[in-house]
Design a protein around this nucleic acid. Sequence first.
DNA 1: CCTACCGATCGGTAGG
DNA 2: CCTACCGATCGGTAGG
Lengths: 195, 195
Amino acid sequence: MATTEKDKPKKQLIREAAARLFRDKGYSATSMRDLADAVHLRASSLYNHISSKEEILKDICFENAYRFLATMEEVEQMDASATQKVMALLHLHIRTATEDFTSVTAFNDEWRHLSEPDLSAFKALRKNYEGRFQAIIEAGIRAGEFHSVEPAIALHTLFSSVRWLYDWYKPGKKITAEDLEEQMCRLLMKGMTKQ
Amino acid sequence: MATTEKDKPKKQLIREAAARLFRDKGYSATSMRDLADAVHLRASSLYNHISSKEEILKDICFENAYRFLATMEEVEQMDASATQKVMALLHLHIRTATEDFTSVTAFNDEWRHLSEPDLSAFKALRKNYEGRFQAIIEAGIRAGEFHSVEPAIALHTLFSSVRWLYDWYKPGKKITAEDLEEQMCRLLMKGMTKQ
DNA sequence: CCTACCGATCGGTAGG
DNA sequence: CCTACCGATCGGTAGG
């Protein structure tokens, strides 16, 4: 028996609706009444499933952080060139951005609305991930695969490119997800210009 | 006589403080009390200088939109290759992001909080700018300067790269603004990998 | 420029 | 799951 929307636990439905609203209006501009409307409940009834607005944000942010760290682990253990590792990570980011809108909340600015100690904990995970990504770039430079560039600039330029995908990319419409992944990777790895 | 901070009209000081707060916390999470504290006034006194919170956002967004459209006009009239034109625009975006934090509000998501008819008007200006940027990319592809890529993908990848500069780049600290401009341009034009 | 204050809305709770 | 309601805070106004 296939899993339908109705089988999903209410908590998950609430979280997905929240992620969509956070993406569209931002965390602060999304009220619990907005969220309640989206899942056809009264605001007070939400609290039978979640304990606070911030808990939803926290769950979304940390789930995505751990998911990306798990993939980083796998990529680090690949027997592959730095180029292949960077491309694997880019593919992950592009695919996630197009398929899972909870990731937008985590990657973009909404995590800033976490309060302590969650804010510091999240920033530490993010910094850990970025540091490991940058180490792969540095290895690629040392191996002569990449141009000699400030690793921090390369890291953030790659990161930023994928960060705003949600804002312009509409799946299916002319550009398929596969085209997008292939062309963005090629652009970032080989650049705009010929030669 | 040099212009000092004190010579600036109060309205401009308020706008700059607002832009900084919008960047740090977002438009919705910035209250008029926050803004009043930043300029050492009571919230009610702000209204002697501005007419509403949204007016500040509107001013910031449209001022930047017109500034970028004016530069686009100049770039279009340059007697230069598509490569040179794209680099000129990238330089503008990078320089603006590092020097003027009001631009962040306009380029990133805060403009979404405009209400109609300003929202549609702003989106139209943005679309106009993006269309003209994309036309330059298309000309570069036709001229054989650029790899054959979906122009929309190239446009948004370039755009997104510069959009988050404010989030990680701290001027002076190790990486100078000149290094940043040069290396980001090189990375986007020539890519990560050698050959 | 301030004090005083407005109605609306916020996240969340009590109680059933 | 609802109705009823809480104190806090919101953007903004009146009046001086």
